[in-house]
Write a protein that binds this DNA or RNA. Structure first.
Length: 424
RNA sequence: GGAGAGAUGGCCGAGUAGGUCGAAGGCGCUCGCCUGCUAAGCGAGUAUACUCCGAAAGGGGUAUCCCGGGUUCGAAUCCCGGUCUCUCCGCCA
């Protein structure tokens, strides 16, 4: 959520900044609701002040046995007016809140203006796409030949877009999870968390999935609960409605969780393989920090996510999302894209974002500066470190051999009981 | 699923024949003094949000005693609904 005071005082600038995301934006409904709200609130508070004063006077009169009836009668009317105003103010507040919750974050001034992913500049790259003296296969073919992926039976059990791994495949997925968690907890200073995979509406609203993106979520029937689409939601909400101490910042959490996404509107896209699933595994990194540190923290986060790919010896590039491709809650985002030989394309495998105080304001996540009065909102960041299913797919495609075998990278072998290669 | 108990400030914990309670007391914490050495004593301060005045320091106003609604001139205190926590029974990984 944007700072209502800032929006009020910088209407045109906010409209312009939001317009960079694409489409026109008018804050006229906001302005009207805000003005009405402030007007009514001022009157309401004045009346309440009067009531508080007179009510104390009534108490005094009654105690000394003096007649209070005239004042009581007067207050009867004041109270009626107060009730009326309270309703109006409550409605206006609701309306304002609705508007503000629906506004996306302001893109950072540095973010390049653009329409869609075609306009995302490449800012870094690592490794060379491998050369094959045969036609590289897509990972689903490799996986099926190895007998470690079984989309047909997954469809029987659940439906399309669900994963089913066997044997060394299941082991490899688990190895990736453990490798990533060990890296982030052991070398990058993250605290490991195993959070709920189901969260409530408040949490989904704080991180920005709700109210706008309900169709992308799986909701439990008969409950106001949702399956998490990413561990960002439970991790960021760890400190919901808390006031942190400056010296405790930055805080860094990592979690492995399955992620559940309805993928509404993605019919026909990535219909085969592990790229787009209703359920997938992900290691998430979440950081809370002081506002002045958040862009340095974003670079740190990005480097940590990149480290996973470097250790796995997978070629990738980093793109900066342009304004048109930027997520709802983000002020700035870098995507890491891994090379997929089976598709001859780079595909997103991690997204690292700075949300500034957008989520913190929605979630009530503050901190207190040492020796200072009052509180400020923290800045929150998160990044995938990494999407495990996509990493699995990238591994199969980049390290496939002509005979259908797949080499296991050195860092994973300890997690695979020393296994060096998956063989048909 | 059945039965019961409870939700007050960072923590503990008073406060219900409705009134001067943002809320006693204790602990913790901060600053100062004292003392002097790792312990204690004394004094002051110590919630959040919004808003108004002020250059600032600071001061004024409103709201918040789980949430929502009701009664009343007035509610932490009364009534209704909800949420959560705990205990016992049942069931269960």
């Amino acid at each position: 959520m944007l700072d209502i005071k800032y929006v009020r005082q910088n209407l045109a600038a906010v409209e312009a900044a939001l317009s960079r995301r694409g489409g026109g934006v008018s804050l006229e409904p906001f302005r009207l609701a805000d003005e009405e709200h402030r007007r009514d609130l001022a009157e309401l508070e004045a009346l309440r002040h009067q009531r508080n004063r007179v009510t104390a006077e009534i108490a005094r009169l009654k105690k000394s046995g003096d007649p209070a009836e005239p004042l009581v009668a007067q207050m009867r009317e004041v109270s009626a007016r107060i009730r009326e105003l309270e309703q109006r103010v409550a409605h206006a507040e609701e309306r304002l809140n609705e508007i503000l919750l629906g506004l996306p974050n302001l893109p950072h001034a540095d973010v390049p203006t653009g329409r869609d992913s075609a306009d995302n500049p490449v800012v870094a790259s690592f490794g060379e796409p491998p050369r094959f003296d045969f036609e590289p296969r897509p990972h689903w073919e490799i996986g099926s030949r190895l007998g470690i992926l079984d989309p047909e039976r997954a469809a029987k059990i659940a439906g399309a877009r669900f994963p089913l791994y066997y044997a060394a495949g299941a082991r490899l997925e688990r190895a990736l999870i453990n490798f990533m968690l060990d890296l982030h907890t052991g070398e990058h200073g993250y605290r490991e968390v195993l959070p709920p995979f189901i969260v409530n509406r408040r949490s989904m609203t704080a991180t920005g999935q709700l109210p706008k993106f309900a169709p992308d979520l799986f909701k439990l029937e008969g409950w106001d609960y949702f399956l998490i689409p990413t561990a960002e939601v439970p991790l960021t909400n760890l400190h919901q409605d808390e006031i942190l101490e400056e010296e405790d910042l930055p805080l860094a959490y990592t979690a492995y969780t399955p992620c559940f996404r309805s993928e509404a509107g993605s019919y026909g896209k990535d219909t085969r393989g592990l790229i787009r699933q209703h359920q997938f595994n992900k290691i998430e990194l979440v950081r809370f920090c002081r506002p002045e540190d958040s862009y340095a923290e974003l670079n740190r986060l990005l480097a940590q996510a990149e480290t996973v790919l470097r250790r796995l010896e997978l070629p990738y590039r980093v793109v900066e999302l342009c304004t048109g491709d930027l997520g709802f809650s983000a002020a700035k985002t870098y995507d890491i894209e891994v090379w997929m030989p089976g598709q001859g394309a780079y595909r997103e495998i991690s997204s690292c974002s700075n949300f500034e105080d957008f989520q913190a304001r929605r979630g009530g996540i503050r901190f207190r500066r040492r020796g200072r009065k009052g509180t400020e909102f923290v800045h929150t960041l998160n990044g995938s470190g990494l999407a495990v299913g996509r990493t699995f797919a990238a591994l199969l495609e980049n390290r496939q051999r002509a005979d259908g075998a797949v080499d296991i990278p050195a860092v994973l072998r300890p997690y695979m009981n020393g296994m060096e290669r998956l063989t048909p």
